[in-house]
Design a protein around this nucleic acid. Sequence first.
DNA 1: CCTCAGATTTACT
DNA 2: GTAAATCTGAGGT
Length: 271
Amino acid sequence: MGRGELSAAPLPRSFFDRPSHEVAPDLLGRVLVHGPVAVRLTEVEAYGGPGEDPAAHTYRGRTPRNAVMFGPPGHLYVYFTYGMHFCANLVCLPEGSGSAVLLRAGEIITGLDEARARRAPALAPDGRGPATGKAKVVPDRDLARGPARLAVALGLLREHNGLDAIWEGSPAALPPLAEDGTGHGTEDGTGHGTGHAAWLTGLPHGFAAVLEGRPAGPGTIRSGPRTGVSTAKDTPWRFWVGDDPTVSPYRVHVPRRRSSAATSVGEAPSS
DNA sequence: CCTCAGATTTACT
DNA sequence: GTAAATCTGAGGT
């Protein structure tokens, strides 16, 4: 597929100084870099501020967990959920507002080997190999397909909560867009790894930046209800790139009954 | 392809 | 106590 060039120009902080539902669609096609891995965003969700969005972590005000969302725009809000997963957001609006955009999925642009290694299946407890015994491989299109997977692929953890994603140095300090493609771009399987440029491979580990990339065309942007939320189902603040294979499958929120909890009494099963 | 259930921390009722 | 901005492997269709 002939895709256009991706711009490595960093987005300014003012890009994020807007309501999250305006920033979110504009983030599609942009590139988030963290260390050696860069992801082209293909799916995001906007979350509003306190008192206005019942699905948002900030709905009931500031807590230790969501404090970063009340900070200045352009920072990463990384939270821990479901007891085992991290998810990453980019903070919007001025300090004190408490809104952000959840990063739900994307395509790995650089650092493919690093991302594959991070997403490789965990070994069995005895360390004798993959837990299943079969050497399963995560397809490249699934490396960052889903918010927790995206966080893993980018290496985003609790310690990166609050990390600034705005490049405030001189643009000249950014490495040149080397185009050698020798280290990356080895195709396999999916057929959509088109030898991406090896730009940014010289950037230091541990920093984050959002680059212009190649904004999704207005005609390719889709929107709908947010995934997995139990409230505000009529708010279409999930945005994704239509027909992109890295967009995660939509799932309606289904409250899960705890297995050990008492089952309901006198409830006839509805078939 | 699909649905089911388990893993397991955090915040709030 | 329990729902939550989730993922994964198992097993059925």
